[in-house]
Simulated assay, not measured.
Amino acid sequence: MVYSYNKLWKMLIDRKITKTEMRKRAGITTNMLAKMGKGEPVSMDCLAKICSAMNCGIDDIVEFNIEKRAERGNN
């Protein structure tokens, strides 16, 4: 699966909030923020904390796509 947090990054820009400020408001670790920066999966608890702090839904901050097996060469 491919995770994208681009919606969250855009929301932060639109609201003029830094990633560090969002991290502190949400009460998440720097490790979780780093994982998100790399497009890696994070826990549902982490996403819920961010949604609560940002007053939004999960679909407002993360997208995921299942990679097609055909693209990998597996059928």
Score class of each variant (00 low, 15 high):
residue 1 M to E: 12
residue 1 M to L: 13
residue 2 V to L: 11
residue 2 V to E: 04
residue 2 V to Q: 03
residue 3 Y to L: 01
residue 3 Y to H: 01
residue 4 S to W: 01
residue 7 K to I: 00
residue 7 K to N: 10
residue 8 L to Y: 01
residue 8 L to W: 01
residue 9 W to P: 15
residue 10 K to P: 14
residue 10 K to G: 10
residue 11 M to C: 08
residue 12 L to I: 11
residue 12 L to C: 10
residue 13 I to N: 12
residue 13 I to C: 07
residue 14 D to W: 00
residue 15 R to W: 06
residue 15 R to S: 12
residue 15 R to G: 10
residue 15 R to Y: 06
residue 15 R to H: 09
residue 16 K to D: 15
residue 16 K to R: 13
residue 16 K to Y: 06
residue 16 K to H: 13
residue 17 I to G: 08
residue 17 I to D: 07
residue 17 I to F: 13
residue 17 I to T: 13
residue 18 T to Q: 13
residue 18 T to W: 10
residue 18 T to Y: 09
residue 19 K to Q: 08
residue 19 K to T: 05
residue 19 K to D: 01
residue 19 K to H: 03
residue 19 K to M: 04
residue 19 K to A: 01
residue 21 E to C: 02
residue 22 M to K: 07
residue 22 M to Q: 05
residue 23 R to A: 07
residue 23 R to Q: 10
residue 24 K to R: 14
residue 25 R to M: 11
residue 25 R to Y: 10
residue 25 R to D: 04
residue 26 A to N: 06
residue 26 A to Q: 06
residue 26 A to K: 08
residue 27 G to V: 15
residue 28 I to E: 08
residue 28 I to V: 14
residue 29 T to I: 02
residue 29 T to K: 12
residue 30 T to I: 10
residue 31 N to C: 04
residue 31 N to A: 09
residue 33 L to D: 02
residue 34 A to N: 04
residue 34 A to G: 04
residue 35 K to H: 09
residue 37 G to M: 03
residue 37 G to V: 03
residue 38 K to H: 03
residue 39 G to K: 01
residue 39 G to E: 01
residue 40 E to I: 00
residue 41 P to Q: 00
residue 41 P to L: 00
residue 42 V to G: 09
residue 43 S to Q: 09
residue 45 D to R: 11
residue 45 D to V: 15
residue 45 D to E: 14
residue 45 D to C: 12
residue 46 C to T: 12
residue 46 C to A: 15
residue 46 C to K: 10
residue 47 L to Q: 08
residue 47 L to H: 06
residue 50 I to A: 04
residue 50 I to C: 06
residue 51 C to V: 06
residue 52 S to H: 02
residue 52 S to D: 10
residue 52 S to I: 01
residue 52 S to K: 05
residue 53 A to C: 08
residue 54 M to C: 07
residue 56 C to Y: 05
residue 57 G to P: 03
residue 57 G to I: 05
residue 61 I to M: 10
residue 63 E to W: 07
residue 63 E to K: 11
residue 64 F to A: 06
residue 64 F to D: 07
residue 64 F to Q: 08
residue 65 N to D: 11
residue 65 N to K: 15
residue 66 I to M: 11
residue 66 I to R: 12
residue 67 E to Q: 09
residue 68 K to I: 02
residue 70 A to T: 15
residue 70 A to L: 11
residue 70 A to N: 15
residue 71 E to V: 04
residue 71 E to C: 10
residue 72 R to P: 15
residue 73 G to M: 05
